[in-house]
């Protein structure tokens, strides 16, 4: 009997230890990737890999988050290796606003370099450094495509990779609670402020963030 109880206690203890181990597991935010020299890359951008930005269901706006990592596409451009992703713009481009860049993660931001290409992949438009700004939670550019623009190419910028952007941030954090009352209870919301210094390094890997908005009608529709 005693042995059985000890076995049960040991099992419970082991389960508790495992649970504690799971509960205290700390996820480390991914660090910036500064060097992709060992990665096998093509010699040119593969337009066949372009992903459509227009959603299947007609809608006014859409967010696209595209991870860029060790397994995603890269190319050797002007003798420099860059990671990239290419997207197919919706038709009637000038009726849209596109905000595209590298999403700010905990420790890194994908270093974006944005191009607009025609149907053959020729560069029609690029953006100078001064056009890249802190927009929303990304380091991004914002533009309206022209009618000849067919593809959106986002590649990493080797000249920016490794640079560190320090920023102080104030945020409001929202939580909720539940108060018991004689008639049952009700939930309530509380908010609290936090402030912190952030330091993010521009990286070859990270997340491309894209917001596509139609100025009138739905995405893909002509200007109303």
């Amino acid at each position: 009997m005693l042995r059985a109880r000890l076995k049960t206690c040991a099992a419970v203890l082991a389960a508790a230890i495992i649970l504690t181990a799971c509960a205290t597991e700390v996820k480390v935010a991914p660090a910036a990737v500064l060097d992709i020299s060992g990665k096998p890359c093509g010699e040119q951008i593969d337009l066949m890999s372009a992903k459509p930005l227009a959603p299947k269901k007609a809608q006014k706006w859409v967010d696209v988050f595209e991870p860029v990592g060790a397994e995603t596409a890269c190319a050797r451009i002007d003798d420099l290796l860059v990671n990239y992703a290419v997207f197919e713009l919706p038709p009637n481009g000038s009726n849209h606003v596109i905000t595209v860049g590298g999403l700010k993660q905990e420790r890194r931001t994908l270093a974006p370099r944005v191009f607009l290409l025609d149907f053959q992949g020729q560069v029609l438009r690029s953006f100078e450094d001064k056009h890249y700004k802190n927009i929303g939670s990304s380091f991004a550019v914002q533009f309206r495509p022209s009618e000849g623009d067919r593809y959106l190419l986002v590649q990493t910028d080797p000249s920016r990779v490794g640079q560190v952007a320090d920023a102080f941030e104030q945020k409001v954090v929202t939580g909720s609670g539940y108060a018991s009352t004689p008639t049952g209870g009700a939930s309530y919301t509380t908010t609290s402020g936090v402030e912190r210094s952030m330091s993010r390094t521009f990286s070859h890997e990270g997340i491309i963030s894209i917001r596509v908005q139609a100025l009138s009608g739905k995405i893909g529709a002509p200007a109303g």
Binding site: D63, V97, T99, K133, N134, I135, G136, S137, S138, Q142, A167, F168, E169, Q170, K171, V172, G193, S197, R211, Q213
Partner: peptide, 21 residues
């Protein structure tokens, strides 16, 4: 457009500027 210096939230399409700490 809109520009916010020291935003407490960062709406997705608005230009924001971090404060000098």
């Amino acid at each position: 457009n809109r520009v916010v210096y020291n935003p407490v939230a960062t709406p997705d399409v608005i230009v924001n500027l971090p404060p000098d700490p």
